[in-house]
Every structure is written in C-alpha cells, then in structure tokens.
Amino acid sequence: MRKIKLKILEKKPSLFTRLTLGILMFLLAASLAYAVWSLPTQALGLSAEVAKNVEMSGVSNPVTAVLLNYRSYDTLLELGVLLLALFGVWSLGGVSANKSSFVNPILDFLSRFLVPVFILFSGYLLWVGGFAPGGAFQAGAVLAAAGVLLFLNDWQLERKYSGFSLRFVLVLGLVLFVAIGFGFVFLDRVFLEYPPQLAGGLILLIEAAATLSIGISLAALFLGRDPSVKSDSKIDTGVHK
C-alpha cells in the first residue's frame, strides 16, 4: 500500500496561530475540567425511576428498557440517521469496484468458518439484550462484520436480491418501528407507547428488524456503492480528468 500523507500538515503554522490555538485549547480544557469537578458526587439522575418501572417496560435490562421503551424516539432517529448516511453514500455514485483477482486462501477458509458463527452470535446478542448487555446495534454490527468478511473475499450479492429485496431489508427496521409506534396511537396511546403486557414481544420484534437493517446498512456502507448498479460501469465523478 502506498503511503498517503497529509500534505496540509507538512507546513507548520505560524507561531501566532499556534499560540492563539494553544490558549484557546487550554481555556477549553480548563472549563471542561471545572465542569467535571463541579459535578455532584451523588447525582440522583433517573436511574431510580428506571429501576422502579423496569417491570412495565417488557425487558429486564435497564439499558434496553431506556433505548427501546422510555427513550425509543432516540433509537428510532438513530435508525433514520444510519439510513440517510447510506443514501448519502449511494448518491455520491459510489466507488469503482476494487477488483482483486487474488483471494487470500487463509481469509477465504477463515470466513467460511467465521461467518456462520458471526450470524449465530448476532442472534444471541439480539436475544440476550432483553436481560443482559446486548441489543440491536451490537447485534447489527456483528452481522455487518460478517458482511465485511464476505466482501473482503470478493463475494457479491446475487443480482436478483440487490434490487427490491435489499431495499426492503434496509428500511424494514425503521418502517416497522414507525408502524408499531403509530399503530397504538389509534388505540388511545401516545406515539411509541406500548401496552405493558405486549411490550416484551414488541421490543424483540422491533429489535430483530432493526438488527437486520443495521447489519445490512453497515455492510452496504463498507461496500460503498449500490450493488444493483453495475459495478463495471465506472461512474466518472469528474474530479479527475
């Protein structure tokens, strides 16, 4: 691999700039340190409230309860942000496929062994999120890691799946989340409020869909282009002649 260096940093800025920046940074660090030191040592926070109501949330892991029930709006928006990021990457036209004819046999062997384990582990993280550390984002990231391994081995998504099917899975998490959130609005509840007796199942359903969407989105971000666009038709962005 060729070494790429940041040319912009090779010229040192003037003493005045460095001094000014140094003073500003020192002031920032000092105010941050002051803020941290003046924090109350015995903060009440909302953890008592969370612990008190965790039985109503449908899960016993307080983190999952916060992410998928009390503050599920944040998680919903996170899914939206991830999807938007992918749209952004795709709309740039994508990079030309990195055709490497050489596939490392060790990597090939290892990923045949590891990808099923990753998928299994992703399912485990999703399931365990209800009562122990885990959850949709972690499970999705492990799923995406399986995808990255496959892409490193020149694996390609079959063309018949790269159109509608791929897009369906990509938006599934967000659509299901919004649909369930709005569904109960018609049953005299507020947006994203679940009835306590159904909450556990609903959270698992949303998390399962979100895991799929997150995993496929992150893997697609690694690929860096829309797989339904022909990879050999190089899109010239016009940046270089």
Partner: peptide, 21 residues
C-alpha cells in the same frame, strides 16, 4: 458493558474497516 460492546464493534471494528477501505 453495553457501551463497551457498541464501542468495540462499531467504534473500533466497523469504523476501522470503513477507514481502511
């Protein structure tokens, strides 16, 4: 541990892979 899991998988693993690619 929840944040640690997310940091290790997304922060270190996937972002690193994205940067390398």
């Amino acid at each position: 541990p929840d944040v640690a899991l997310a940091e290790a998988t997304i922060g270190a693993g996937l972002t690193g892979a994205l940067f390398l690619s």
